[in-house]
Amino acid sequence: MTTQTPLDPDTLIGCPQCDATYTLAAPKSGETAHCARCGYRLIAPRKKAGMQIIMLSLTIAVLVIAASVFPFLTISAAGRSNSVSILQAALVFSDGILVVLALATAALIIFIPLLRVLLSLYVLTPVVFDRPPARGAVKAFRLSEALRPWSMAEIFAIGCAVALVKVTDLADVQFGPAFWMFTILVFLVVLQDTFLCRWSVWNSLDKTQT
């Protein structure tokens, strides 16, 4: 048993959620290593995940920019109509103290998701192409991870559905091009998050440095 031999921290992996410690045995591609005590997903490597994530990230970046400026939803009632983009929706909290909320909303649904995508491109591209990691890659990935709970594009998309239900009896609603972009976007963001094995990224950043 490992408790009798002196432990080399390099050969161990700890569960961030419950602090259980295991000897490191990287699972094969496509398999997942869970913490035996609390079930936390420790390692989940996938073949070609790096390339897939880069492709997804590029698509997401383009979609976020496009989706935030193109008209998103259009409503019409009694001959009048109004169409808005996502940026306009975020900036609706514009009187007085609500400006803070406008900035926060814009950050949560556009800027933070966009920043996370750009950071992961910056970190992963050199790793996937077998180059030494980009300067500050470790910091960049750490920031991207810290921002993860604050990236709320998918929540905004569900919010649209709720808002639509509430508005439809008041006026007619048409979907703009940005609505469909955003729907695809949400799907891609979730996909990118599942593909990404954090441990593998940290490990590759580590190996190439020493």
């Binding site: 306009q88 929706a89 808002a163």
Partner: peptide, 21 residues
């Protein structure tokens, strides 16, 4: 926790959308 933010987004969408003078 994050999903509670949905309320705020619903308000933002409705308020920006329903502006028919």
């Amino acid at each position: 926790g994050r999903w509670s933010m949905i309320d705020i987004f619903v308000v933002a969408i409705m308020a920006s959308l329903v502006q028919l003078n």
